[in-house]
Each structure stands twice: as C-alpha cells, then as structure tokens.
Simulated scan of single mutants.
Amino acid sequence: MDANELRILSLLPWTDWLALAWFFVAWVGYALFARKRSASSMSLLAVTNQYRRLWMLQTTGRDVRVVDGIVIQNLSTSPSFFASTTILIIGGLLALLGTTDKATELVREIPFAARTSALVFDLKLLLLLGVFVYAFFRFTWSLRQYTFGALMVASAPDYRVFDRGEASRDEFADRAGRIVGMAAETFNDGLRGYYMAFAVIAWFFSPLWFAVGTAGVVYVLYQREFHSEVLAILKS
C-alpha cells in the first residue's frame, strides 16, 4: 500500500469505512437477492408483471386502444415527476458543496451529529449526490422504456389480424408486457436509490447510525417487496 492509498484511508476513521462498505454491500446485495428471489418466491414486481402481460394480452382484442395509451401515459408520469424532483435535489446538493463551511457549522449544532472536517463533510455530500445521480438515470431510462411500450401498443396489428391467426397474441403480450415490466423494474431501482439516500443522511450523525439506517432501509424494502399486504391481495 503506497503513500497515496494511506492518505485516502486516513481521511475517514475505520468505523466510517466499515459503514460505507456495508452500505454498498447491502444495496447491491439486496438488488441481486431480490432479482434472484423473484424467480422462486413471487415478489411485488413479479406479480405485477403478470398483470402487465395480461393487460397486453387484452390489448390485442380491443379495436380502439385509447385506454391503453392513457394508462401508459399515466404510468410514465411517476418516473417523470421523480426525475424532475431529482434534478432539483442534485442542484441543491451541488449548491451545498459550495458552502461547505457554513453547512458544517450548522450540522455541528445538531445534537448527536458527528463532528467532522469540511473535507469529510464533502465526501458525505458526494455520496448522497452520487445516489441521486444514479436515481436520475434510472428514472429517465424508465421514462424512455414506457415510451417504447407505448410505441408497441400503437404499432400492434388490428385485433382482426390476431383473430385470423396472422399474428400471435401470446408473442405480442410477452414482448410488450416485458417492455412495460422493464420500465417498472427500472423505476423501482430509482425508488430504491431514494430509500438508500435516507441511510446516507444518517451518516451525518454517526457511522453507527449509518450502518443501522442501511439495515433498516433494506428491511423495509424486503417487507414491501415480499411480504406486503398488497402483494398478498394481488397473489390471491
């Protein structure tokens, strides 16, 4: 380990490094776990994907598909809203980076908040900024995927073509349902970023609160995706 690496490691106490490592392991690990678990134990996203495929299957039997276009448009408003909100948050965090000294003094006045240097405070802000940048990219990609789904619905053959067997309803429902499902999955990734941002905020108080907050956020995500009441209703 050279002098530069030692200098970087010395910026934070070892407890902060452990909490930071736990944060990334928990976030990435839960995302991989949720994706794998959905294959064997139906998650909220997996169950709603079944409804999305059923929706697209019903689309092939409609003469006028105005309702389907309206539904997709309404679904796309959520990632659009969050993307716009995230831009404002990113702008606020960038502005806060320019007034680190004043922000540090303000944080020091908060009871139980950790007393850190301006450089360490900047590092915590940069992590929070990175989380929201990630969320912004996921929200905007979700928005584009919804437009792809709208294009598939708009370009679907007439229902008489499906009735005559010249086009497969199941193939269309599989492809279109998967596109809309991918948009929902990407939007879900952005929402997870928002949840994890609350854990990062706890880092301003102490690395212990950071670690506990990360575990708490993962627990909430797990409960909502695999054991929520709405999931039980959708599966019934």
Rank of each mutant, 00 (worst) to 15 (best):
T100G: 10
D101M: 04
D101P: 10
D101K: 13
K102R: 12
K102D: 11
K102W: 13
A103I: 10
T104K: 14
E105C: 07
E105R: 09
L106M: 02
V107K: 13
V107G: 07
R108C: 00
E109D: 13
I110V: 15
I110A: 09
P111D: 10
F112N: 03
A113P: 04
A113F: 05
A114D: 03
A114H: 00
R115Y: 08
R115G: 00
R115L: 07
T116Q: 13
T116E: 12
T116G: 07
T116L: 10
S117Y: 05
L119R: 05
V120Q: 14
V120C: 07
F121I: 02
D122T: 01
L123M: 05
L123C: 03
L123G: 00
L126K: 06
L127Q: 08
G130P: 03
V131Q: 06
V131D: 04
F132K: 06
Y134K: 13
Y134S: 08
A135N: 02
A135T: 05
A135P: 06
A135S: 09
F136H: 11
F136W: 14
F136K: 13
F137A: 11
F139A: 06
T140C: 02
T140Q: 10
T140G: 01
W141R: 13
W141S: 02
S142H: 03
S142I: 02
L143P: 06
R144I: 14
Q145M: 13
Q145L: 14
Y146P: 14
Y146K: 01
Y146Q: 06
Y146M: 01
T147Y: 15
F148Q: 09
G149Y: 04
L151M: 10
L151V: 06
M152Y: 15
M152S: 15
A154N: 10
